[in-house]
Simulated assay, not measured.
Amino acid sequence: MSDSASTVLSERGFRDALGFFATGVAIITAQVGDEKLGATVSSFNSVSLNPPLVLFSLTRTSFGIDKWKAASAFAISILDEEQISISNRFARAGGNKWSGLDVRHAGNGAPLPPGAIVHFEGRPYAVYDGGDHEIFVCEVTGYHIHHLKRQPLVFYSGKYRHLDRHDADQGPPLDNSWLHGW
């Protein structure tokens, strides 16, 4: 007997089903005028190596979506497993997410939250209609690896998770270089 289930498509059910795809957690940042923007996302992904492109999406009802679309530079900071509190801080709508933080800036001027494993710097490449989201594609202009030995924060089935350290060194077979679409 299988433990699988099939259901009628509903928004909540679809969201729950998507939650079975484990993702990393990132904070997207930008600065428009004097205002610093920041949002936690699990929708960050690579798109292309040449040119170097990545994407993230934000809901159309995001606070300040027009400011996000006006940004000329972005930073994408990948969080480590100890950064749940900063992930939650930037996941909330409104408020001053930057209050009390030691704010540094990427080479492109985008603000950086503290402690990320790596951050990518980029500029807008394209924005696409993604239904109830806007899909932002960015051209990566640089990146900086801050912490080689930290484990990433993972989001799975609506909860933060940690990687099993015993599996951390297992990679795909050497003869399958296209496993990740590259």
Rank of each mutant, 00 (worst) to 15 (best):
A116G: 14
Q151L: 14
H166T: 15
R123V: 14
T141I: 14
Q83L: 10
G115T: 09
V140D: 00
H166F: 09
G158H: 00
P114I: 09
G95A: 02
N88G: 04
D102E: 14
G130Y: 05
E139R: 07
G142D: 14
I135P: 01
K69Q: 14
F136Q: 05
H146M: 12
S77V: 11
S77C: 13
V154S: 05
C138W: 01
N96R: 01
I86F: 04
H144G: 05
K159Q: 15
F155P: 01
I135W: 02
N108T: 09
F90K: 05
H147V: 03
H166R: 15
G130H: 04
R165H: 10
I117K: 04
Y128G: 03
H119F: 13
H144A: 11
D132K: 05
H105I: 08
Y125M: 02
I86N: 05
F90W: 09
A91D: 06
L148A: 12
D102Y: 05
Y128Q: 02
S157G: 07
A126N: 00
A126V: 00
Y143W: 13
A71W: 11
H133G: 04
S85H: 11
W68Y: 12
I145Y: 04
K159M: 11
G95N: 07
D66N: 12
E139I: 02
R123L: 03
W98R: 07
T141W: 03
G107F: 09
D80T: 09
G122Q: 00
P152K: 08
D129H: 03
G131V: 02
G107H: 12
H133C: 01
G122K: 00
L153H: 02
Y143R: 00
F120D: 04
F155R: 05
F120N: 00
S157F: 02
D80S: 13
F155V: 06
A110Y: 08
L148V: 13
G142T: 01
E121I: 06
P113W: 09
P114K: 11
A70K: 15
G158T: 00
N88M: 09
G115M: 07
G107N: 14
P111T: 11
L112Y: 09
D129Y: 02
Q151G: 06
G130R: 06
L101I: 11
I84K: 15
S85M: 12
H119K: 04
D164W: 00
D132G: 01
I76T: 10
Q151E: 15
L112N: 09
F90S: 07
H146Y: 05
S72I: 11
Y156C: 07
K149H: 15
G94W: 04
H144N: 14
K149R: 14
Y156P: 00
R92T: 07
P111F: 12
L101W: 09
F136H: 08
D167P: 06
S72C: 11
G131P: 00
A110C: 12
G100M: 06
H133Y: 03
R165L: 13
I86A: 00
H162K: 13
Y128S: 06
A110M: 10
K149D: 15
L112M: 12
S77L: 11
A91L: 09
A75T: 08
L148G: 08
G95R: 08
